[in-house]
């Protein structure tokens, strides 16, 4: 019977209205656009068509899709492989030091994305730091062209999203019941076996949460392929950008955007299921 409890809906209303008006409505609008035809000089002609979605299977676009998915999958895998040991090390550090370590692991994530990507241009370009270091080290060949390559894009994406994966895996590890690990060791399992059979399965929800996040943001990324890929190869994000700002084919761009949203929803649903199942396993184990 307090101020808050009597009118919770009223308090939430302005924010909900804002999200409905400026997020849900625009997304529904482009969902609609995705089923219409493009006008001769751009714009949207309100004739129903499925052509925008059919075009995705055109070999030209299908290749960009598969490429984006492959790059995003590589980035996700690398990010998890680097983040897991880091999160594990933080969770094993003295309790008093953990918040600070975690804070500095996540800090770069909240700072400017463009600048963090730009930093890699400075490192990787032909006159860049890495080539200079090699030259000082006695390397006399042609400077290496590392920038504007798939490797550069993957490095940039891993770099940018790593902090979040560390955070997600850490939060799983910190909730881990240490007595289960001790039980496994007491029952004679070695450290590796204990890790593979106990620790890893119990922290999979964190891995899944971090992984889904990195995959979704990588596959729809626009800035990193544009800057570190030099525009030489495209990902879905760049394709969406082009349809809206250069090709002036909004319906096709809208269809591509909707496919990104669909991928996101499917992955988040799978992740939520995996998390629920893992929670069920823990409850069973505790019984």
């Amino acid at each position: 019977m307090s101020f808050q409890a009597t009118r919770p809906n009223l308090l939430a209303a302005p924010a909900i209205a804002w999200l409905l008006a400026f997020m849900v409505a625009p997304c529904l609008l482009i969902l609609g656009y995705a089923f219409f035809e493009r006008g001769t000089w751009g714009g949207v002609v309100y004739t129903f068509t499925l052509e925008n979605f059919e075009r995705v299977f055109d070999p030209l676009y299908a290749r960009i899709f598969l490429n984006s998915a492959r790059i995003a999958a590589t980035v996700t895998l690398l990010a998890i492989l680097i983040a897991y040991p880091a999160a594990y090390a933080i969770s094993r550090a003295p309790k008093s030091r953990q918040p600070l370590l975690l804070f500095f692991a996540v800090l770069p994530f909240w700072s400017n994305y463009l600048i963090r990507t730009y930093a890699w241009i400075v490192l990787l370009n032909r006159e860049g730091l890495i080539n200079n270091v090699l030259r000082w080290g006695g390397y006399e060949g042609e400077p290496l062209s590392m920038l504007y390559s798939e490797g550069a894009v993957i490095t940039g994406l891993v770099y940018n999203y790593l902090p979040f994966v560390i955070l997600a895996i850490y939060s799983s590890l910190s909730r881990l019941d240490m007595s289960l690990i001790e039980a496994s060791r007491d029952l004679g399992a070695g450290p590796i076996r204990t890790f593979l059979r106990v620790t890893l399965p119990l922290t999979l929800p964190g891995v899944a949460a971090g992984g889904v996040f990195v995959f979704v943001l990588s596959i729809g990324n626009f800035v990193t392929p544009a800057l570190l890929g030099g525009g030489r190869f495209q990902m879905i994000g760049n394709l969406v950008y082009d349809q809206f700002l250069t090709a002036n084919d909004w319906p096709f761009g809208a269809a591509l955007g909707m496919i990104l949203i669909a991928i996101m929803i499917v992955l988040l649903t799978l992740q939520a299921r995996a998390t629920n199942r893992a929670a069920g396993t823990v409850r069973e184990a505790e019984r």
Binding site: M23, L29, I30, V216, I261, M264
Partner: peptide, 11 residues
Amino acid sequence: VIPDIVLAVAL
């Protein structure tokens, strides 16, 4: 979680 490019073109 929504990819920012999608929110951007929607807006």
